[in-house]
Every structure is written in C-alpha cells, then in structure tokens.
Amino acid sequence: MRTLFHSIPHTHPLYYVALLATVAAGIGILALLQALPTRLRRPLIALVTFLGGLYYAAEFFIPTGWGVHKGVDGNFLSPYFDKVANISSVLGSFSIGLGVFSLIGMHLRIASRRRESWGFSLMLLISFVAMTIFTLLNEYAGKSVVIPSVAGHSSITNHDIYVVLFNGGLASLDSAMFALIGFFIISASYRAFRIRSVEATLLMASAIIVMLGQVTLGSWLTGGLPSHGPLAFFRFENMSEYILVHLNAPAQRAVTFGLALGVLATSLRLWLSLERGLYFDQE
C-alpha cells in the first residue's frame, strides 16, 4: 500500500497519469454511490460513520505495545494520528464554501434584483471581494505597490490595504458587535434582576461578592481589613476566591460529571447511528 501511494515528482508524466486516474476514480466512486439503490443509503451512511470513529476508538482500546517495537509508545495505529488530522483538516476545509455560497448567493440575488436595502447587500459583496482579494495578495504579493507614491506621500502596498481592512475593518467591527452586549447587560441588570425568592437572593449575593472580588473596588472597600488572620476572610477578594474554589468548584464538577456521561452516551449513539430525529431519519 505504501508503494501504491508513493509520491511521484510532478515533472514526471506518470504523475499526471496518476492524478487523472485518481480524479476519474473519484468521480466513478460518486457515480457508483449515486447508482446505489435508495434502501442501501442509510446503511452506507451508518457504515461510514462507524468507520470514521473506528480509528480513534480502536487506537484507544488496543493495548499499548501491540504491533510496535518494544519501548515505542502506543500501538500500531498510533503513528497515523498526524495523517488522520491532515485528512480531517483538508476535507473539513472544503466545507467553507457552504456558508459562503449561501450568504453571497442570497445577497447577490437581492443586489441584482434591486430588492429592498439592495445597497447594503452590494456593500457586503464589495467588502467580501475586497477582503478576499487583499488577504490573498497580502500573502503572495504583500510588498507589491498598488498606489505609487505621490507628492511626498509614501506608496501604498497590498499589505497596507490589508492592514486597513483587517485591523481597521474586520477586527474593529467584530469587537464593536460584541461590545454592544455590555450596554444590554446594564439595562438587563436594572430591569430584569428581581429578587423574588431565596434562591434568587443567594444567586445575587454570590454574584455581587464574586463581582466585587474581581475588581479593585472590592479590594478598596475591604482594604481596611487585615490581609492575614481570621478577619482576612471577609475581604472581598478572599470571599470571592472561597466561593469560586469551595462552593462553585464542586457544583461545577457535579454538572461536569452529568455532562460527561451525556456526551459519552450521545457520542456512542452517533457512532453506532442509533440517533433518531429529523436529520437522522432522512432517506
């Protein structure tokens, strides 16, 4: 098998023969799959799902030392982690087009048919094209001049435009989008946090202590208390640390145990194609 997939220098004619043969084989496989009877599709999907998980599951359960020389870590499947990672990365990267096609397709339709707010869709398309082009140009021709120097001003290169688009555009806008939530938290705290029960009181008390323990204001408020001794416990930063380490941690661990068992069970069901629902029951 290693000889069969041995690399061939791209200057050799056999390389192109192998390439074309593999493309033909790939298309042939797809045609064969499409020609399969419909009733065989779900079992085939289940088989592929099982094979997908089999490598990692088998590598985990097969004892260390099987099929390898003495002193080597792992078993005969362990040396292929990097190859599986590369195949997963490459195949997964091909799916980038899914989101791109959907978004760009939708806005292309709006812009081309001059529907409501088509101007915004046009701007989206322009920014998409600009960012794509200048990110690629930055990588492969970053120093190439786009606008030569004029009247004492320095020239503008692909890299300069990329920096404006990334740092000034994408990064700033991304940060600002999430910064909006800061405002809404303030109005939510004011309008929605009503203490109506014992549990709500405990929740707010715990939140306030942890909040004050996280900021310099809390340290300043209880700064008069000694930093050692029994009274030191009542400094906000110490109370906050106590809540997080001794009260929050065991609760989080218990939740983690429950989640872990749930994730394990769901993973097993996914691997063995036992899941049911709208997606899994499709023909």
Binding site: G182, I185, I186, S189, Y190, R191, F193, R194, I195, M204, I208, M211, L212, Q214, V215, T216, L217, G218, W220
Partner: peptide
C-alpha cells in the same frame, strides 16, 4: 481598564439595588 471595570460594576450593583427597591 481595571478602574473603569470597577466603576461599571458599582453602577450595575447600584442599578440592581434601585430596581429592586422600586419593585
């Protein structure tokens, strides 16, 4: 930003208290 964070926290705690007093 630590001082700014302190002031915002103080405002939030004050607003929670004011909101609950009103409620």
């Amino acid at each position: 930003v630590s001082t700014a964070l302190s002031m915002v926290y103080a405002l939030i705690i004050l607003l929670v208290i004011v909101g609950n007093i009103g409620y």
